[in-house]
Design a binder for these strands. Sequence first.
DNA 1: CTTGCTCCTGACGCGGCGGGAGGTCCGTAC
DNA 2: GTACGGACCTCCCGCCGCGTCAGGAGCAAG
Lengths: 249, 249
Amino acid sequence: MDSLLTIGQLASRAGLTVRALHHYEDLGLLAPSRTEAGHRRYGPCEVERVQQIRSLQSLGVPLREIRAALDAPNFDPAALVARQREAVEAEAARLGDLAGRLRTLHAYLQRRAEAGTPVPPDAFLQTLHAMQDIERHYTPEQLDQLKARADELGEDTIRAVEAEWPQLFEKVGREMDAGTDPTDPRARTLIDRWDELVAMFTNHDPGITQALGTVWRESGGSASRMAGLDPDRMRDLFAYAQRVRDARE
Amino acid sequence: MDSLLTIGQLASRAGLTVRALHHYEDLGLLAPSRTEAGHRRYGPCEVERVQQIRSLQSLGVPLREIRAALDAPNFDPAALVARQREAVEAEAARLGDLAGRLRTLHAYLQRRAEAGTPVPPDAFLQTLHAMQDIERHYTPEQLDQLKARADELGEDTIRAVEAEWPQLFEKVGREMDAGTDPTDPRARTLIDRWDELVAMFTNHDPGITQALGTVWRESGGSASRMAGLDPDRMRDLFAYAQRVRDARE
DNA sequence: CTTGCTCCTGACGCGGCGGGAGGTCCGTAC
DNA sequence: GTACGGACCTCCCGCCGCGTCAGGAGCAAG
């Protein structure tokens, strides 16, 4: 009744496991006395220490840093909290970003599933590849702008545009195959629509539009596979579109 | 020139390390062919596979799950993304919470430092303990309310109230020691101010005020040490305050 | 043939424990 | 006296995604 607790008693009272207490001891955070037989006995002092460990752990401070803090009799709480705050906020920001991308992706897959055209595994992987390419070529601000613009347009518009792209590619491809002259109004109308769709998302920002061009040129493969087209075919389509634009003057 | 890459070439092109490629292979994610001497050779197929691995990794999917996905020829992208989204959002929420608590704590320590009364290490640890007690006794909604109320009040008010508490305890203690009758207006004025300060933060919400009482009763120790007072002294102060309230009718 | 680069396998380390093996100690009941 | 159940002890492996040696072999150029 000396208020000396066994490891099991301390564990259940403090709401942690025997194994955890062993671990703290291995790390030199805790040094209970021992009975003759080698069983650990925890006094009030150790009990308080466990509380302190748990308190600092609740802030996400790593155990070795906790040891350093508790061993230094006069550490600076403000400095510790400041460090921890920085670390946690950085990690939270990273995860927040990731969560955002996953939400966008989830919404896209959801739309496709509801539209009856679920994304097959390989197209999905190519979409991811394309996303990586895009994130490499755009600045974070541009990505924010694109995302904001997409939110502005609303889900219905996005759905409609996503459905229109393949059809548009199809039509342009037919004109190209038919050898339609780049100055022909039929071609020009299609390419105007093309540029209009792009402008809808880029919000007429030349920087963003240019970056989009870079993505298409440097890693056209991924973008094309995303649309379900052969990269060579895609390149031809782009070249034809460019000729139409040039002819428009 | 068979477009068979050595491990070093693939690593530098894909922007990862040789060790990482070894690791993927250990996990059965990748199976490059070998030269007679046992050196790995990566063909286009493996290169693509590495891309896919990296793509899924960029979503935070664990390697073993990636293996499962890539090994199953027709896995469901939507399901995978949905799972990952849930997991990441849960983790992001946890970290966001933690970041919030660290911000609050940082602001508090900052105020104390600027006020010339930096928080000593032991008081800091007791504050953490008190925070844990409080979080155990309040519902999440109540905590949100408290936080919102604190934001409403503004930093200056909080600063002033934090400075007033010790003085108030001091004055109440003097009346108690002097044996002032609980019905005495001097005592009543002090306790009215006490309740007023509490009400400022609890926003007169009886649920929150009651929870605060529970914290003070069940784990009075931590709350008192936070204020730099002896727990017994604190208990006496609370008992005296309650007598004054009862006498007020 | 040597030099210097790349490649190989094997193993430890990190962080915070979980979980199990195999043995010891303790209190109670027979 | 002893048998039993439960709590305790000390190793030690596993997780996750690699980083980082260590010690040795292959390979192209001078």
